[in-house]
Design a protein around this nucleic acid. Structure first.
Lengths: 205, 205
DNA sequence: CAAAAATATGACAATCTTGTCATATGACAT
DNA sequence: ATGTCATATGACAAGATTGTCATATTTTTG
């Protein structure tokens, strides 16, 4: 947790530091991000940094927490919007909402991407924590199983993870290559359709 | 390309250096791997390293090439084994062969994994190159489309990439968490089955 | 207003990295 | 054996990184 000296700072300065952190962690992985770079961009001295935060981890976790708050709001809106939606359309809606969010705050999305690509014990520890979206999706899958929309013989967690893996893979690739998310809603629809219906030719229908 | 001084080296010394490189690049990403560490483990001086290779890239590419040779043999065996196999069983066979290979030379698999997780312009450039396995799979998909096994309306490359993404995701996760690949053949089968048949409940069949 | 407490600062030590280079060693041919 | 050529070596420069700390400055408090 950041020290009190940080929270006591005037809003503008806090924002400056936060912005500098986001910019750095959007460019580099945690392990490669440089405190030097952050303090330079924030316009504070190296000494001050250590007066505000214990170390890089401290700042990183704080930043993720702040970003997470915003992200959660986006995700929760989906659940509220149409409580009767099936998993597939809810998922697609969620993706689209996430894309709108990512376009508003592109750096936030990049921070998440960098984290996704990171390894290391510290990052691995972090991952398990904030899986609110994951849980929500799993519940939707299970509801759909009861409604007879999704096959009961497939593990719910596996299903969610498949979608997660696919979205992460294609979005990360696209984002890294072109720096943009255009065409992604369409791709997401294709992916959902494929996993839903399968790629095999249907014998009868 | 390594310099002649390297190729002139006695076999044992070459092997020692190669082994040290594999060990380092299995532990660390390219950008984080340290030449210092490699020379230490290989028992050569720092100066010698630069007499053998131009730089880290040089060694890395050489190493990947050597590993790639072995890997390609494994993959090619699949195509030979049963030329009439459909994409799904060929893919599964390929996965299983890759797993056997990875278990024999676990570090090679880890090198590939580290590369998978890496970003950076240099690594990105490398990726496109050695996609022999990718192409082979794409051809299989297209054959199966003609045979009426796979739906024609889905892009072949997308299909291959979906499998690639899923396998990479689950295997990397598993490997990183537990250091082993046990249970992976079964998981691969599940994944193939899901993408083949879909997760939606079939209305009639 | 003066003293005390809080905060800001950049130099510093320690540790890493890469790539170069003058020098030493060894092998091989004349 | 002597000279030449290839190779081996570790010190070195230049550039990063992190975390600490004595000192200066600002703010708050009595």
């Amino acid at each position: 947790m950041p020290k009190n000296t940080f929270f006591n700072l005037p809003q503008a300065k806090k924002a400056r530091i936060f912005k500098a952190a986001v910019e750095e962690f959007a460019k580099k992985r945690f392990s490669e991000a440089s405190i030097n770079q952050i303090v330079k961009n924030a316009g504070i001295s190296r000494g001050s940094f250590y007066q505000y935060f214990n170390d890089k981890e401290d700042l990183y976790i704080y930043m993720l927490g702040e970003i997470g708050k915003e992200k959660l709001e986006v995700i929760k809106k989906v659940g509220i919007l149409n409580p009767e939606a099936d998993f597939f359309s809810a998922f697609l809606y969620m993706i689209k909402a996430a894309l709108v969010w990512a376009e508003t705050k592109p750096l936030y999305g990049q921070v998440a991407m960098q984290m996704e690509l990171d390894q290391g014990d510290f990052i691995e520890k972090l991952r398990g924590l904030s899986d609110e979206g994951f849980l929500l999706l799993k519940q939707l899958v299970e509801k759909d199983k009861k409604r007879g929309l999704i096959r009961e013989d497939i593990d719910s967690e596996l299903i969610v993870e498949i979608f997660y893996a696919l979205i992460t893979h294609f979005f990360t690739k696209k984002m890294y290559r072109t720096g943009q998310y255009d065409g992604m809603p369409e791709l997401a629809e294709k992916l959902v359709h494929i996993v839903k219906e399968g790629i095999a030719v249907q014998r009868q229908k």
